[in-house]
Amino acid sequence: MTDLITAPPGSPSVLARPKPRRRRSHGWRNALIGWSFILPNLIGFVAITLVPVIAMFALSFTSWDGYNPPSWVGLKNFRRLFQDDASMTALRNTVYYAVGYVPLTMLAALGLALLLNRKMRGVAFFRAVAFFPYITSLVAVAIVWNMLFNPQFGPVNQFLGWFGVHGPGWTTSTTWAMPAVIVTSVWRDMGYYMILFLAGLQAIPKELYEAAEVDGTNAWQRFRAVTVPGLRPTTFLVLILLTVQAFKVFDLIFVMTQGGPGEATLVLAQQIYQTGIVDGEYGYASAISVLLFSLVLVLTLVQFWFNGRRERK
């Protein structure tokens, strides 16, 4: 995992360090130009997304039923959050999910992209196939994977049976439901992130590979010396997107297990939905959202910092 975001010196920068020379002389001009590029998107983003998000932050300090005026309750929602078993279970489950989902999807997506980034007959077909799980109806995905994981008749357990392994109850077992859900999610999303890696691979200059080949390197050395550093920005993008995706996962799990059995696959997003929209406790739901947001923000900053530090070494 770490290897993928490690790069030797001289690779393209992710958080490009400003060059002091240019910055001093053209500071205000650059700022003007920079903002002019960002504004069209930023205006829409602020008006449509950021304002409600700020409102959500404010609501986390209130009790609000979604209709009558919110009333200030200070840190009450947050105190409740850390004493609420269901929310803490959701937090643990979400972290569990992320720890399994992020690296596995990353590897699967990268593997697919490398495998399918070549000139060969039928490559368009295989790429389409890899992308298919993402566009297949969620309901169909949930139904078929539940069938595959069926403890009695499911092919997964039949397969395990050939090796004398008595398969677990998968989605009907509190221990195995989460692994089952992770496998399904990885399967579903790998084609999506493959697309990002495929785009990233196109940016690596052909000449670098040719030069490396002239130097008599083998395929693995070329992968380490050319592909990994060249893919760095993409890998970083995928890593952050996967983290974000993992922490807000909802749809697939909800359709597949509804958070069960028991609370074995209850995740934060479902808890937010449940307490907010279903139970009508928007203040408390907002507090859970703030927790989720802070968690991902910290993780993102750590990844940025880590990434930037690698670069300067």
Binding site: L268, I272, G276, A285, S289, F293, V296
Partner: peptide
């Protein structure tokens, strides 16, 4: 960081 929020979190506001 805002991509990280599930839509349900700020849907009502």
């Amino acid at each position: 960081a805002t991509i990280a929020l599930p839509w349900q979190a700020y849907m009502v506001p």
